[in-house]
């Protein structure tokens, strides 16, 4: 089953079995945001703490399949402690990796409950150099071969982006 081996890489299974940054931060002070995949019932809860332009802490809760759970875990490890500029760049690169196929889906297939996905199809296709910066996250590249699973992989990312947008609009 070579296709399956490509989808369920060891890194993904590892993060699924032992999710990093699992749980919830106290909110407040942390900001709490929920994302839903109405098609399969998966849900993710992201709590994030932003201090001085840095994503100081993040925790992930919720339930879902191996792809949504591992993507959330990989994301939390990749963004924790990063400057917000870098977090935004990473979100864009990751969604770019997923976007080519996502944009070919039906109008609702790529949507999460919080409706932050409308920009996904428009995201630029990432450069190879960007992909190399994804590190472990690149393991999720195999997902694009399974279009219906892309929304599983992007659920936590859209939820994080929603959370950051909330904080930005609150600050303005």
């Amino acid at each position: 089953m070579p296709d399956l081996e490509e989808l369920y890489r060891e890194v993904i299974l590892d993060h699924y079995r032992s999710p990093r940054n699992s749980g919830e931060l106290d909110s407040p002070p942390a900001h709490r945001v929920e994302g839903f995949n109405p098609l399969c019932g998966d849900e993710v809860v992201v709590t994030l703490l932003v201090e001085d332009g840095t994503l100081a802490d993040i925790k992930i809760g919720g339930t879902g399949c191996s792809i949504s759970q591992s993507s959330a875990s990989l994301m939390s490890a990749a963004v924790k402690g990063k400057r917000l500029d870098d977090v935004y760049r990473l979100i864009k690169t990751f969604k770019g990796m997923m976007s080519v196929h996502e944009s070919t889906l039906g109008p609702n297939d790529g949507l999460t409950g919080n409706g932050t996905d409308e920009d996904a199809g428009a995201a630029d296709e990432p450069e190879a150099a960007d992909l190399s910066k994804l590190g472990e996250l690149a393991a999720l590249q195999g997902v694009v071969k399974f279009p219906v699973r892309i929304k599983c992989a992007t659920l936590s990312w859209n939820t994080l982006a929603q959370g950051l947008d909330d904080l930005e609009s609150a600050a303005n």
């Binding site: 296709d3 019932g41 879902g64 699973r149």
Partner: peptide, 21 residues
């Protein structure tokens, strides 16, 4: 194993089952 993952593996066997609620 999450139902979504089960259905994905079963698809490779051409088995059509429905995951979800």
């Amino acid at each position: 194993v999450h139902a979504h993952d089960l259905a994905q593996v079963l698809d490779q066997f051409a088995v059509c089952v429905r995951p979800g609620h």
